[in-house]
Design a protein around this nucleic acid. Structure first.
Lengths: 325, 325
DNA sequence: TCACCTTTTGAGAGCGATTTCACAGTAGTA
DNA sequence: TACTACTGTGAAATCGCTCTCAAAAGGTGA
């Protein structure tokens, strides 16, 4: 319709090669009239690229409690992707069967690369995908093949500084409510707590939670039974801290006068608790950006060895820990 | 490697044609050794199918407040999809620019069909996608081209019954806090409230919210100023009702003795408010199932005319409305 | 005007699968 | 034994695009 060969038309749509202005316009006009859009499958077949990357969120339950973790992460990812005309798709398997289906699906290479988050400690999925030749970047550290790239938050350092903050505020009977201990992030946060306690010569006092307020509340009650005179608690997540605050209120303890509380996440809800929550800020959007950057690198240069990035956390001091250091 | 032609190997992987048991096993063994997986792009090119459908969630902000709306919807969708070996991918554009990119992307037909939710009243996206020949099913009614298929919740009927319930409980000064009025669902719920009020000869008393607790709290305060002696409020969502409860508590009103409260959604949080919330249950998982079913039909038979399904809602009576009818 | 260089364009191969069509075997029937 | 009817398999076309290579067109300077 534009009076040119398929080759030239293709040049207009891919935009790489030079085409004279006149023909470009003719082709574009024809395309508009015909409502023509290049077929993705045919294009992928020859280029070997789909210009799509997947974010796999194998989280069965809550999209993180009322807190915009994924929206922020996604915004960061899209930020890095947008300049490359790469589309992000989400895969959210809600059961083990669906996880397997997602893995089979990804094996057929409908995407150029995969971002994985919310992994458990020894999840085999990333390694299997990498073996199939798919570029993979993890959100969150995992102890495994050193060829796997990841972007992590400095959970250990953040937890250590949070605990140190409590120690410097004069607290001496500091407990912790951990996250689910099959998650590396939970282990790292506990390790940070332990380091700080050990350095100050204080004994650890721990109860396991699972990052939810309900578990946090139960764990706090158990801690109060075990050690009624505790004067501080480091919670491995902000929702956990919310639960702990509830349990403390129910037990008649004042925060921060009787018990200081520190959380982790700097979720939106941290600023709105009563009292406002001292917590560890994690740069979620930057994490997304960095994950996407690494993945694009890996796609461009698949032979590349695994790269690891750890992003710094920052202590945000509010009223729940008894104020500034 | 299996000593057969590509044609036969293909027959094994597609599974449609008959292949002798011996060759099937030989091909499968070879595939396993070679780690061979059919390439999706090449397959799509010839079959014209991608065995993928997209769920587009153009929601910029909260993935619905701490409430698993999308996980439940997704579970329903996957339920209907799983028997057809069709993979669901999510597209979550977080800005107008990203929405456009998603639309361009879908135009290249990387999916067989599209599910759309959380639309505003006059959103042009579904119509544009349908024009491009993409099968589309909407989650939630939209007034537009009758060729568009949708699955809706009976918002009007649910709201009407909720209001009637308040009237039958002897309330006579019943207000409503609506949702964002650019959403069809919010308009329908308001219409249901109005119908019930008009039928009982009661005047409407309305404030606009946006389905969030914050807006609900503000709206409730405004209502109390406008009509201090109101004795009931119908809230267009459960989070809205949570906000309203906060405002009522702050104003010293007892629920349900002074003011009866009814919500809409039957979100998880409805059962845990103080007092537990009377609300309108919507069958989210069934909605997802039905959306996927309609879409699969449409993919199989694209010429099909638009189909509309409305799912019934159900009033769940708890303490916040003063008990049983 | 001619030789030479640069830009623009077209012909055709090829990406990796599926699928049609025809042809061997193999078995069943007369 | 000959004929028919299936089954199972392979050869080759095809899907819609991109990209290499070579030729045509357009410019430049002598």
């Amino acid at each position: 319709m534009a009076g040119v060969s398929r080759a030239t038309a293709s040049r207009v749509f891919t935009g790489k090669a030079r085409v004279s202005d006149a023909t470009r316009r003719a082709v574009e006009r024809a395309a508009r009239q015909l409502r023509y859009v290049p077929n993705q499958a045919a294009r992928s077949l020859v280029t070997g690229r789909t210009d799509t990357v997947a974010l796999v969120i194998p989280e069965p339950v809550p999209w993180l409690f009322g807190d915009p973790f994924y929206p922020v992460l996604i915004r960061g990812i899209n930020e890095a992707l947008s300049s490359h005309e790469v589309q992000l798709v989400l895969l959210a398997p809600q059961s083990p069967a669906e996880r397997e289906r997602v893995e089979r699906y990804l094996g057929r290479r409908p995407v150029d690369g995969v971002l994985l988050t919310a992994l458990h400690e020894r999840d085999p999925m990333p390694e299997r995908l990498r073996e199939r030749g798919l570029p993979v970047v993890l959100g969150g550290r995992i102890d495994g093949d050193p060829r796997l790239s990841y972007v992590d938050i400095d959970n250990l350092g953040g937890a250590r500084r949070a605990t140190e903050h409590l120690i410097q505020a004069g607290r001496h009977r500091i407990a912790t409510i951990t996250g689910p201990l099959n998650r590396v992030s939970a282990l790292d946060r506990r390790a940070g707590y332990r380091q700080a306690q050990a350095a100050a010569g204080l004994p650890p006092l721990e109860e396991e939670g699972d990052y939810t307020p309900e578990a946090g509340e139960r764990a706090m009650r158990r801690l109060l039974e075990r050690q009624p005179d505790l004067d501080a608690v480091f919670c491995a997540s902000d929702p956990t801290a919310v639960g702990a605050l509830r349990a403390l209120a129910a037990a008649g303890r004042r925060v921060p006068q009787d018990v200081a509380v520190v959380g982790f996440d700097d979720a939106a809800l941290a600023a709105t608790t009563e009292p406002p929550l001292t917590t560890v800020h994690q740069p979620i959007q930057e994490m997304g950006r960095e994950m996407a950057r690494l993945l694009l690198e890996l796609i461009a240069e698949p032979a590349r060895v695994g790269r690891r990035v750890t992003l710094a956390t920052e202590l945000v001091i509010r009223a729940s820990s008894g104020g500034g250091r």
